[in-house]
């Protein structure tokens, strides 16, 4: 998902405290910043929320690529609003992570030094306008699948950030589907572009949920802590079941010859994505990894004088005020 393959850190805290903590979570209580928490819980959450926040921010880049090229002024305004929402999502999440004792700048620096990750999906290029439709429909659609259950996560600030985010995501998905409808019902060339976008984004979207949890210790610890709510396979299945009828509606073909309805399980059977590609992208070898990082590093470095200047101005103004009193 936006947070993929988050490693959990085991705790070597006092077993009695751990048991009491687990009991609070089992009782559905929210854990708040000042509460005692196992070191592993704290560290795992920083990784997970940080990765999620970075994904929101880096995720603006592939879409930002089309703001100046949107086909109409209305589409441009809509896309701008959508991308602005993603900046907001990043901010809500950074703030949630900061309550765990990591600073915003530290997180940014960890991202820029490659010590923190962001979702694999944002390392794919957006080569046509139809890709913007496919991203809203598939990528935001997949994100919603993951984020809706996370509204119930045990960490209060994270849960509240997720609630805000979920309120805004439906617009994202619908504007994407709306673009897909336009393209799929347009000229032959437009329809071909829509199909091509689906072809390229289908498997990367399935990868967003991460590989099967199997018996990953990280997943089971995170599930016990309620910072992961559903298994990767469960979410992926739900996503496929939701998306196939939508593709049918668009009269587009999911690029999977193995895709078929399975009456017994009440869901579709489908092909797994190429997990070696997923691991390569996570390692930094996807089509756009280096572009994305370059863009983030440039934004950070070029913005330094603005950040410092505004801070200096604020301090000078505050000092002036004190002197005047």
């Amino acid at each position: 998902m936006y947070a993929q393959m988050v490693e959990s850190t085991a705790s070597d805290d006092d077993p009695e405290k751990l048991a009491a903590f687990q009991a609070r979570i089992d009782a559905g209580e929210k854990i708040e910043p000042k509460d005692w928490m196992p070191e592993g819980y704290r560290k795992t959450l920083i990784r997970q929320i940080g990765q999620h926040a970075h994904s929101e921010i880096v995720g603006q880049l592939p879409e930002g690529n089309w703001i100046t090229r949107a086909p109409t002024l209305e589409r441009k305004a809509i896309l701008l609003a959508k991308v602005q929402d993603e900046a907001g999502h990043g901010l809500y999440l950074y703030c949630a992570a900061e309550t765990l004792g990591v600073s915003r700048d530290e997180m940014t620096e960890m991202l820029l030094e490659g010590r923190m990750k962001y979702s694999s999906i944002f390392n794919y290029p957006t080569v046509t306008w139809a890709d913007i439709g496919a991203i809203g429909w598939l990528v935001d659609g997949a994100a919603i699948m993951n984020q809706v259950p996370l509204q119930r996560t045990s960490y209060g600030p994270y849960s509240r950030a997720m609630i805000r985010i979920c309120k805004e995501e439906s617009f994202h998905m619908r504007q994407g589907f709306d673009i897909m409808m336009k393209m799929a019902n347009g000229s032959r060339e437009q329809k071909r572009m829509a199909q091509d976008a689906l072809n390229r984004f289908w498997y990367p979207s399935l990868m967003m949920f991460g590989p099967s949890d199997g018996d990953s210790v990280h997943s089971s610890q995170s599930m016990a802590w309620k910072i992961k709510i559903s298994s990767n396979d469960e979410l992926r299945q739900k996503f496929v079941d939701q998306t196939v009828p939508q593709a049918d509606y668009l009269d587009l073909k999911i690029p999977d010859p193995e895709l078929k309805w399975n009456q017994d399980k009440g869901g579709y059977d489908f092909s797994e994505p190429d997990w070696s590609e997923f691991h390569a992208v996570l390692k930094g070898n996807g089509p756009c990894n280096s572009d994305r990082m370059k863009a983030r590093i440039r934004a950070w470095e070029d913005g330094r004088w603005v950040r410092d200047g505004l801070m200096a101005h604020a301090q000078k103004k505050a000092a002036g005020k004190v002197a005047a009193e």
Binding site: E32, P33, T99
Partner: peptide, 8 residues
């Protein structure tokens, strides 16, 4: 509150 538990 978001600042809780943050050291400077």
């Amino acid at each position: 509150m978001s600042d809780n538990g943050r050291d400077s």
